[in-house]
């Protein structure tokens, strides 16, 4: 089947992505040395999200896959957000109301 394979990604792209990941790692470490209060965790998570999207879209070839794959990932992330977020409906409001 023709749609079953995708064109090979040139080495250069992967190496550039790898460099970007290293730089982002350095940024996380650097930022973590600055006290931003509660923001620290969110910055760390934000950078980690950027890093992971690089890995997912390039290393894992998601960019080249069909819409079905992207939709599936979206569904999974949505469910994940629901699981974590709705648990906090309990945890954050305990003893509040």
């Amino acid at each position: 089947m023709t749609d079953d394979t995708h064109a090979p990604v040139p080495y250069r792209t992967f190496i550039l992505i790898w460099l970007a990941l290293l730089i982002l790692t350095a940024i996380t470490v650097a930022v973590s040395r600055v006290d931003l209060g509660a923001l620290n965790v969110w910055v760390a998570l934000g950078v980690a999200s950027i890093k992971s999207s690089l890995v997912i879209f390039f290393f894992m070839h998601l960019r080249q896959e069909s819409r079905l794959f992207k939709l599936g990932l979206l569904v999974m992330l949505m469910i994940l957000a629901v699981f974590i977020g709705m648990t906090f409906l309990d945890v954050l409001y305990r003893g509040a109301m």
């Binding site: 629901v82 409906l89 309990d90 945890v91 954050l92 409001y93 509040a96 109301m97």
Partner: peptide, 21 residues
């Protein structure tokens, strides 16, 4: 997938969670 905590109204969970769930 959004309603699991309705098994827990009496568990000591927060009232906010009970409202939403």
């Amino acid at each position: 997938s959004l309603v699991w905590a309705h098994h827990m109204y009496a568990s000591g969970m927060s009232d906010m969670a009970i409202l939403i769930f």
